[in-house]
Design a protein around this nucleic acid. Structure first.
Lengths: 139, 139
DNA sequence: TAAATTCCCATTGACGCCCAATTTTGCCCA
DNA sequence: TGGGCAAAATTGGGCGTCAATGGGAATTTA
């Protein structure tokens, strides 16, 4: 599901994803840098709250908790879609995901991701290769 | 949320953070060296009091508690924003955080931090790596 | 008095909000 | 089965508002 970024730096979020958001009554989006991939993940505020709760369980002054807090708060922003369901592709998104003028949307259950198209295919190829090697080893 | 320092050594604090400050009716900002990171933390007086309470709970003779107390009471200054919501980036800030002409703002609940951009990404990358290693270990 | 800081104003630029045009999709009927 | 239509989705862009920026002038400080 690849979409173009328009002249004003916007992408329209495919209706399939928006449907999920409206069903969950999510208006404010928590847009954050994925922990594992060079991709932007988009979810509702409750995901941030879940992260924060997890952090709050530990000592708020411990290095570990602070690092996680930094990852969560420094790696995420709140955004909202415009009236037509479009998202502004800010530098925050561009820089981390390497996105310029094309965005690939990937649904992942209760959230979705933004990828730079070729980065996604590269990642998929790599994963496929690893699976092949595994199956060869186990033969 | 990265901003440039202008020719006069000022950065405009993003409106998102200023909104929080005005909502809490905070005019004087306490600017101090963060406990765990090479970053400057900025908060209102009540956050300071919370830190102090937390320190009081610990062993007053422990090196950590003493250091933190020292940082809070001696390692900080009061500052205020100008009419346009800008902060003067003084040497106190530059030296401790390694900031030159760019500042990344990180909100952390009821206070926020100033980072040298690359220092923040380095710290975040490191944290991601640690998380990855953890999940690998637990496999 | 020179340098730095604060105050003030003008310009720029980004973003939200809106409407119109165009394309795609799903569905019904001949 | 193939059009034809209506609804929905996407796309493009105008415009007003406000944040962000840049810089001049006044004021303070050393």
């Amino acid at each position: 599901m690849t979409k173009k970024v328009d002249a004003k730096g916007r992408v329209s979020v495919p209706s399939a994803f928006r449907t999920v958001l409206t069903r969950l009554d999510i208006r404010d989006l928590y847009v954050f840098q994925d922990f594992v991939f060079p991709a932007i993940s988009i979810a509702g505020p409750e995901v941030l709250e879940r992260f924060e709760r997890h952090i709050d369980q530990g000592d708020p002054f411990s290095p570990d908790a602070n690092k996680m807090s930094l990852l969560i708060h420094g790696g995420g922003v709140f955004m909202k879609l415009d009236g037509e369901g479009r998202l502004a592709v800010t530098d925050f998104i561009r820089d981390f995901a390497g996105i310029t003028n094309q965005v690939t949307f990937v649904g992942r259950g209760d959230y979705f991701q933004l990828w730079e198209p070729s980065a996604l295919t590269r990642m998929q190829d790599e994963t496929r290769r690893e699976r092949m090697e595994q199956s060869v080893r186990s033969t």
